[in-house]
Design a protein around this nucleic acid. Structure first.
Lengths: 337, 337
DNA sequence: CTGAAAGCGCTTACAG
DNA sequence: CTGAAAGCGCTTACAG
């Protein structure tokens, strides 16, 4: 290990252990059981340890066609939600001997070719996609058996779904039980199924409770607290302002807090706030935020498990749905008066 | 592209373009200038396009010994700071044709062997290390020319330094100018150079201003707002409580906000707060947080640039120091009375 | 249970 | 400027 360039190969290990190179390969490939004798295996491991041998990944990949690397495709890792998904995925990958490569797609429309490159150059075995525009049909074809879509569905690619409807329903029931009748929705200005689902479930809940939905009870904001603040201000200054606001994400709730403070409305006395995520932000806000928890780390881990299932067993895994739980904290209360 | 298994190789491209396989390799390896005629190059690119050819990464890596993958080693990506470093690193890597693999080290003491594995198996070309215990001497040896340390120094490995001292000095001068005389330090209970530097600079600034430093003006907290809240409570309830608190990180500042609220101290009227990071948290807090910005994304990008310099040019890059800037917001004001 | 051999798809001297 | 050939270090049938 200290000399220059020992960089031992399986041949070196074989020579030292007095066995064939194939035996070494079998042992390190985990295919030794019933093929290589116990003693031989031990001799091989011993020799490998002495030499500091590790199989060359590139050679293995070239020969087997599998890199044991998967790519996580997200728009932006600095978003705490995606960072947590990545964290879960990395942990799950590691326990299975895989590694996770990050692929951020910022604004790129042409992400499809990035994916194709990675695949045809055999750099990665598979993909985890998080909230992106769905792939074109021809790409979806190529991705069969090599990709899991998180929180979207497309073209029969297996996916990890979030039970957003039930989550929103729980949030709305909570508010309605508290006595709220004027409930507005601050949505994310993102064209993704998950956000459409939130709005549909919101409307369904209103309808079921026999509540009305004035046109000015819907606002949309980009994924920043600044824009959310602007949108919330609009909601709070309409003729008959809501007593509660449901937000699509914790980041948006931050904007609501800011707008409320600027307008001298106290949370939760004058205004109740519920959102989605339960990111680090939720317990940092004051009062702490009532929010529908999206267990991002678990999602990353589960999605990765599905992907490995597809990759290793070749079985198209059934899509999985993750339930969401409402975390009731201090930002919701009975409406004043 | 639509048939099963076309998966063209450089031989297929060569055949189609009517040239030798080596010419194809030269073109895709970026070594064609002066070695392959312009026309030939175009013919090759054309043929490759038609076949949907991409060089096989594994073969390239096996032959050349370089994977064009680097690993980012961090304790925890769900921390917004590390997520931002990763973001910057990934962006910089991509523009140079590299990819970033994530290696989280949670609590593992034995990270050294993880690193060695990755290196001897030739899975990655190099490493970016973020705030970890320094490597043992023998490992540092192996890492020569293949690693950049962020915000630490060790064993002559090149590093990206943050000018923490100057940052802290700016924070302290700001408070002192405002008229504060009783300034406490809420530090991170993490044994890393960066945090030691913060405390030293804090003391130096007090000393320079002729201010005293009572023993109960130092508290340490784990990296959670809950623990920081506990520590801040302690600071705020000591016999002669401080009028300002300097925190090692935004996350800790959140704890101070919580403790202050619980004790009915208003920020900034009764208490000024300054911290380090300028993460998303800073502008989410109310009032917005005065903080020494640590440009994590830039740091990731710069560290990656240094690493590539070491990897590609073989020159040990000089260590680089990043200046830090104080962002003055609404959490600091003149002390009351 | 063990070994000899082919070959994955490139890069890179080397010869022309 | 171009081509033939060796070889990177494995995995995997295949023969014993």
């Amino acid at each position: 290990m200290q000399e220059k360039q020992p960089r031992p190969t399986s041949f070196d290990v074989a020579r030292r252990a007095g066995v064939s190179q194939s035996a070494v390969s079998l042992v390190f490939g985990g295919k030794a059981e019933g093929r290589v004798g116990k003693r031989t295996q031990e001799a091989i491991l011993q020799a490998a340890r002495e030499l500091g041998y590790h199989p060359n990944r590139a050679a293995r990949t070239l020969r087997s066609g599998r890199s044991r690397i998967v790519a996580l495709v997200v728009p932006d890792v600095s978003n705490p939600y995606f960072a947590a998904v990545l964290q879960g995925a990395e942990e799950a990958a590691r326990t299975s001997g895989y590694s996770v490569l990050l692929a951020q797609l910022h604004e790129e429309q042409d992400w499809q070719h990035v994916v194709l490159d990675a695949l045809t150059s055999r750099a990665v075995d598979g993909f985890l996609f998080c909230t992106l525009q769905p792939p074109s049909e021809s790409i979806a074809q190529v991705l069969q058996g090599k990709a899991i879509i998180v929180d979207e569905t497309y073209q029969g690619l297996p996916s990890l779904q979030l039970d957003v409807e039930t989550g929103m329903q729980a949030a709305m029931e909570h508010l309605i039980h508290l006595g709220h009748r004027r409930i507005a929705h601050l949505g994310a200005a993102v064209d993704a199924t998950s956000f459409h689902q939130r709005h549909h479930a919101y409307q369904a809940a209103l309808h079921q409770a026999g509540l009305s939905f004035p046109a000015d009870y819907l606002a949309r904001a980009a994924f920043t607290s600044a824009d959310a603040s602007r949108a919330a201000h609009q909601l709070l200054t309409c003729p008959e302002p809501p007593s509660a606001i449901v937000c699509d994400s914790d980041v948006l709730a931050v904007g609501v807090y800011k707008a409320a403070r600027a307008l001298h409305r106290s949370i939760p006395r004058d205004l109740s706030v519920v959102s989605f995520d339960d990111s680090i932000i939720a317990s940092m806000l004051d009062p702490e935020l009532t929010t529908v928890a999206i267990p991002a780390r678990t999602i990353g881990a589960q999605a990765l498990a599905l992907l490995l299932q597809a990759l290793e067993e070749g079985t198209a895994p059934a899509s999985l749905t993750i339930p969401l739980t409402l975390m009731i904290r201090a930002s919701t209360a009975q409406p004043a008066g």
